[in-house]
Each structure stands twice: as structure tokens, then as C-alpha cells.
Simulated scan of single mutants.
Amino acid sequence: MIDFLILIAAAFGAGVLNTIAGGGTFLTFPALVLTGVPPVAANATSAVAVFPGYLGGALGFRAELAQIARPRLLRLTLITLAGGALGSGLLLISSNDVFAAIVPFLLLAATLIFLFGDGLRDWAARHARGVTPEGAAGLFAVAVYGGYFNGGLGIVLLALFALWGFRDLHMMNGLKNGLSFALSAISVGIFALAGLVYWPQAAVMMVAAIAGGYAGAPIARALPRAMVRGLIAIVGFGMSAVFFWQWLGG
């Protein structure tokens, strides 16, 4: 019962964070590991737990998504599905020991990406001139990362869109949520078929994450953005330190 309370609290907090600024993976993944789920299965179960939120986000920006030509949106979605499938496949062949060794670095990188995401997007926007629009290789690489470990995925996608020359932030957010949903869908399907998902934990966390997503809207309006970013950074760096300590045999 204590384990499930921890998972409910983590998933609710993740729903709130994802609505406000992103970073929910920093709560769901460590909570699953803390409650005894092996690292690879914890990553898969965490992906299932936050999965519904992407659909809600995509539907919320459906008007902006409708402005993108269907052939263009289909091409981007197919690239994302291919990269997500490869990344998820790489997770399947990763042992718990190998993944546990990689996780601290992934968490640290995701935290840094989140913390400096605005600067990353600004840099991408400044260097957009002369860049071939919508290069398949860049999106495919980001999707592989997202299929393997989706921490910080949203920020990387927004930076990529800025590099392509996108300027409408609402359209960028809509496309980010739409592609994230597609990526998560293929990942969840692969993880489920492989038997990696701890379904009782995933089901409880999905409900809590949806509730947290609804609660996040008024909280987002009440809290200063800098405070939220600071809290997520503390959680991200703290979890990175814990996993580094465990990896080093602490």
C-alpha cells in the first residue's frame, strides 16, 4: 500500500509538472525504481503512465495541428514512429545493469536540457537560416532517444522545430504533443508485447497523472514559472545524484 501511495503521489506530481512545464519523468521513473521495479521495466511502465497526457495535449492544440498539411504531418509522424520503434527496441535488448549505468547520464542530460531549454530553442532559432527544413535525420535521432528514454523529449523537439524555422509556438507545441503521442503509442505497444509493463502500477499511475494534469492548470496560473523550473531542476539533479550513487555502488 505504501508503494502504491508513492506511485500515486509521483504520478499526480508528474501530471502537474507536465501541464506546467514538463519534467514528469523525473518523478515517475525514480518512484517506480524506488518501489522495486527493475530499471528497464520502470522506464517502460513510466512511459505508459504518462502516455494519456500527450493525447490530451494534442487534442488541446488540434486547431494548430489542422494548419499543417496532412501529407507533411503524415511524413513527420512516420519518421517519428520509425525512430521511436528503434529506440524502444534498443531498450528491449538492454539489460538492467546496462540501463542502470546509462540512466544517471540520461537523467542528468535531460535535466540540463530542461533547465537550458529556452536558450537551446533561441540558439536553434538563430541558426535556422540556411538549414534544410524538416530534415528526417534530426527527427529520427530525437525519436530514437524518445523511444529509449523520453526525459526532456519535449524540449528537444521544440528546439528542433525552431531549427527548422518554425515561429508559431502554439503550432510547435501542438506538433510536439502530436508527435510525442505517436512516439509513445508505438513505444507502449512494443513494451506491452514484450511484457515489460507492470500493469497494476501503470493503471494507477495513469489515473493519478490525468488528475494531476487537470490540477496543473490552476497551479500553472498561480506559481511563477521560475519557481516551477527551479523545483524541476532540483528534482532532476537530485535523482541524477541518487542514480549515480547507486551505480557507483553506494
Results as ranks from 00 to 15, higher is better:
Tyr54His: 07
Phe149Pro: 03
Ala226Arg: 12
Ser184Lys: 00
Ala69Gly: 14
Arg167Ser: 14
Phe161Met: 05
Gly216Leu: 07
Asp122Trp: 09
Ala211Gly: 13
Leu32Asp: 02
Tyr214Lys: 08
Gly117Arg: 12
Ala63Trp: 01
Leu169Asp: 13
Thr132Ala: 09
Thr77Trp: 13
Val37Met: 10
Gly15Gln: 01
Asn150Gln: 11
Leu91Lys: 08
Arg167Asn: 12
Met171Gly: 15
Asp97Arg: 02
Val188Ala: 05
Ala182Lys: 06
Gly146Glu: 00
Ala202Tyr: 00
Ala66Met: 10
Leu34Ile: 09
Ile102Trp: 15
Ile2Cys: 08
Thr80Arg: 03
Ala101Tyr: 02
Thr45Ser: 15
Glu134His: 04
Gly84Val: 04
Gly117Val: 05
Phe181His: 03
Ala11Ile: 01
Tyr145Thr: 09
Ala110Gly: 10
Gly236Pro: 03
Leu86Pro: 14
Ala63Asn: 05
Ile6Met: 09
Leu248Lys: 12
Ile93Leu: 07
Gly249Ser: 13
Leu55Phe: 13
Ser94Met: 05
Leu73His: 10
Ala182Glu: 02
Leu5Thr: 08
Trp247Arg: 14
Asn177Met: 05
Pro71Ser: 12
Gly138Pro: 07
Ala125Ile: 12
Val144Asn: 09
Arg129Phe: 15
Gly60Glu: 03
Ala41Glu: 10
Leu107Ser: 08
Phe191Ser: 03
Ala215Trp: 05
Val40Ala: 06
Ile2Asn: 05
Met205Val: 01
Pro200Lys: 05
Ala185Trp: 01
Leu74Gly: 12
Tyr54Glu: 04
Phe114Gln: 00
Arg225Tyr: 04
Ala141Arg: 06
Val204Trp: 01
Leu74Pro: 15
Leu179Val: 04
Lys176Ser: 13
Ala41Arg: 10
Asp168His: 13
Leu120Gln: 11
Ala162Phe: 12
Leu179Ser: 10
Met1Leu: 15
Leu17Tyr: 05
Val103Trp: 05
Phe105Arg: 11
Ser180Thr: 06
Asp122His: 13
Pro133Gly: 09
Trp245Gln: 06
Ile232Trp: 04
His127Leu: 11
Pro133Ile: 07
Val40Leu: 11
Leu175Pro: 15
Val33Thr: 05
Ile210Trp: 14
Ala185Arg: 02
Ala125Gln: 13
Ile219Asn: 04
Gly189Tyr: 08
Ala136Lys: 06
Asp3Val: 04
Val33Ile: 07
Lys176Phe: 14
Ala203Met: 10
Ala185Ile: 03
Pro218Trp: 01
Gly154Glu: 00
Gly24Lys: 00
Ser95Thr: 15
Ile234Ser: 08
Gly22Tyr: 13
Met1Gly: 15
Gly60Ala: 05
Tyr145Phe: 08
Leu91Arg: 00
Ala202Leu: 00
Ala185Lys: 04
Leu112Cys: 06
Met206Tyr: 11
Gly249Thr: 11
Gly56Pro: 08
Phe12Arg: 01
Leu223Lys: 04
Ala222Thr: 13
Gly135Lys: 03
Phe51Ala: 08
